[in-house]
Design a protein around this nucleic acid. Sequence first.
DNA 1: TCTGGGGTCCTTTTGCCC
DNA 2: TCTGGGGCAAAAGGACCC
Length: 417
Amino acid sequence: VSRRQLEREAAKPELPGDDTGCTVLHVDMDAFFASVELRTRPELRGKPMVVGGLGGRSVVLAATYEARTFGVHSAMPMGRARRLCPSLVVIEPTRGAYEEASHGVMELFRSITPIVEPLSLDEAFLDVAGAARRLGSPRQVAELIRARVADEQGLPCSVGVASTKFIAKLASSRAKPDGMLVVPHEAVVQFLHPLPIGALWGVGDRTEEVLTRLGMHRIGDIAATPESTLVAALGPAAGAHLHALSWGRDERSVTPNEPERSIGAEETFARDVDDVTIIHRELLRLSERGAARLRATGQVGRTVSIKVRFADFRTITRSRTLREPTDLARVVYDTACSLYDALDRKGALIRLVGVRIEGLSASAEAPRQMELSGSDEGWRAAEAAVDLAVARFGRGAVRPAALVRPDADRDRPRREG
DNA sequence: TCTGGGGTCCTTTTGCCC
DNA sequence: TCTGGGGCAAAAGGACCC
């Protein structure tokens, strides 16, 4: 709520200004998924539109600014969005297009400076200290980026310019849509303190509730509170962190090439499920997806965890750490099933299952012990063959037997194999 | 209003070893 | 034998972000 307040409240104050030392840029694409769709659907421009699934359990992934005037915003259940805006146009997401567009803008950023830290598909921090001689002041670089993203990608974005990551991120959110905001170093506290507490990075619904109960509403209120009080209320890490941020202190540097920590996949069923064979089949699909991504990125993982969401939305996780890291769907799947089968929730209605692999390392340097039986090597060869076939013939060309519906190919000639 | 899917990070609990 | 307790890693949960 407060994040939206932030975007709405107070017309953008043009801080007079000098951008000296403001070497951190935060670039945030506007309504990213929706903007990508509009490139190929110009007839929808100006209409309220969202990207999101059509199923009964989907949520809004991105909303155009026209849709936002109806109160529609991302993460909102689709049913509610449709009720708020009966004329809403809903477009099904096309993930590949967003990944491609994201890759395009990230490459564009890297042509400006090598120090690019992507945060998600649609936003990144850039350190432009080294670009001054070649491209000009941070403000000029920011405008250059906006112009080039518009020209070369056909997409709108907003840019925040400041001396720290956190202020740059706040600045970009206040610059939206399709704008730019520089927060000079001397203006940081004046910029920060009137903002609602929810604007602080790391303050979500829960933390906001705690702080509100303590009588804090603006970032300035947090700044005026002793750090010890915050630590007592929120824990050492969050307390110290928020106190520092409330004074604009943020030492974190822009660091490219952050390694991934985990890879996973999850799926909400269209209807709640209690059939174990359906759950196992889903665990297999998700394990396959995860393991394929491990192999594609040359990584192995040591901990397998599953997530189970019950019909009442209560969510649990279970995990097991393997003796040897793996990139094999077979191993991930066996572990996931064994974790699932150990739950004593026989017959409970399940809404969602997920599989995640953690403790990642590069497969070349990961210790791999040869097993005498060679059984893992057999699976490795089989899964490498699957990767190859998928690369050649596309996803869906090769499927493990459990994924093939018994009646799916009944009418086709079949032979043993 | 009825809640997706991809993640990160922090905290607490638990079991184990010494 | 009983009793702590420190240190550690793994497990579980939860808040948060886009």
